[in-house]
Amino acid sequence: MSRTPSLNNLLPGSWRKDPARKWANLVLFCLIVVLLFVLITPRFSSRDKAPADWQWITCDVGQGDAHLIRIGNSSAILLDTGDNPQALKTCLDWAGIDELEAVVLTHEHSDHYGAYSWALASLPVKNVVVSPYFASEKLNQLEGHVSRQLQHQPALHSLEQGSSVGFPLSNHRVQATAEVLWPPSEPQAIPGESDSSSWTNNTSLVMRWDIAPLNSQEEHLTVLTTGDLEAEAAHSIITNYGSALPSAVLKVAHHGSRGSGTDLIIAVKPQLAVVSVGQGNSYGHPHPSIMEFLEKQRIATKRTDQQGHIAVSSHDDGLHLITSR
């Protein structure tokens, strides 16, 4: 039977004869190991509050989507709301946000807009952004629940493929820009049977964000957001915008469902993929095939059901991640 050699036997004879030198070298060896570990491990930790330098947050709102794009010290854009007001409030408090420059609603599924009325009633909201396929009747119904409580009605903006917008929408210094890659203005170009759940998924606003740093220690952060987009619509986006898609962060489409496909992941080439998903959900999200593909591509992946809220900032040494658990 072979025996594993002891560390002492692996050291040169002169080291074994000089205990002081041996221990000094052991300390040096340990320091080198620790340094290598720090250098190769993603900067990832958890805390009770979001870091002061966050630029993007994916909120843990259960089985739904809600994300924050940093605009100021305590203001942000809310991209989708989830349908759990208390969960959304927890994320806003974690992020230190008390004012919304805009609420962007990607499409007409309640796990993406269900807490919109609560957001309007609870925080100052300056603007609302939707696609042409988010029915005005639906918005009127949602806003009607709180209209008497509002000091002013938020301005409504409709965006479609080819649009570009800078935030804040006032004359202040632009902190974030968004290029709208989907949906197209022609309903017949949207895959799926009209008014089906699949068709609604494919009306999702797909936006490529460029988020400016708040201080000189950060760099611009690029994020591609996808709503509940399915694979067939993703192929059209790849055809039209392939070379413009690469981004540091990808919001994985449709909570990582199998139908979202993997082609968009390949085209975006993200350093980080975030998955908004509820723990133990009945849909089987995220699908194992999507998670296995992300792992095979060696893309760092964080999930709200496992890590909670996910805060991201971009620095010259890479992405910094902080989670709430």
Rank of each mutant, 00 (worst) to 15 (best):
I71K: 03
S324M: 12
L264P: 01
T106M: 10
T41H: 02
E232W: 01
G256I: 06
G261I: 06
N140S: 15
H172D: 15
Q86L: 13
L26E: 09
H109Y: 06
A178E: 06
A87C: 11
E101L: 08
V27H: 01
A115H: 05
S324R: 03
A233P: 01
V275M: 06
A212F: 04
A176L: 07
Y241C: 11
S163D: 15
L156T: 08
L28S: 15
S216A: 15
R298G: 08
Q161T: 04
L26Y: 03
R258C: 10
L224G: 00
H309A: 12
S313F: 02
S163Q: 09
V129T: 01
V223H: 02
A300I: 08
V125C: 11
F293N: 03
T4V: 12
W199T: 06
N25M: 14
Y241D: 10
P124S: 11
T222M: 05
G227N: 02
E219T: 12
A300Y: 03
S164K: 00
S257Q: 07
E232D: 14
L92C: 09
F29R: 11
R21K: 15
P85M: 09
F29K: 14
V33N: 04
A119P: 02
D18N: 15
D111P: 05
L11N: 02
D317A: 12
A234P: 05
Q153P: 08
K126D: 12
Q175T: 05
W94N: 04
L181D: 00
D80M: 02
D111S: 14
W23C: 12
C30D: 06
H235N: 10
N127M: 08
T203G: 12
V252Y: 00
I97H: 04
L142D: 04
Q141E: 15
Y133P: 14
T90G: 12
I71C: 07
H112I: 05
N84L: 11
V103L: 10
V165R: 02
Q297A: 14
D98L: 05
T222K: 03
V34L: 15
V206L: 05
K302G: 03
T4A: 11
L169E: 07
L105D: 02
W199C: 13
V27F: 08
N140R: 10
A178D: 03
Q141M: 13
D53I: 06
L224M: 10
N9D: 15
G62P: 02
V38L: 12
I310D: 00
D98A: 06
A52I: 14
D18T: 07
L224D: 06
I211N: 02
L319I: 04
G284K: 02
I71Q: 05
S6H: 05
P5Q: 06
F29M: 15
P132G: 10
C59V: 08
Q161V: 06
L272D: 00
E179A: 14
A20I: 10
Q161M: 14
I322V: 14
T262Y: 07
Q55T: 08
E160K: 00
P124I: 04
I40L: 14
R21F: 01
V206P: 03
E160C: 11
T239Q: 13
V165Q: 05
G280Q: 09
K138V: 08
A115M: 11
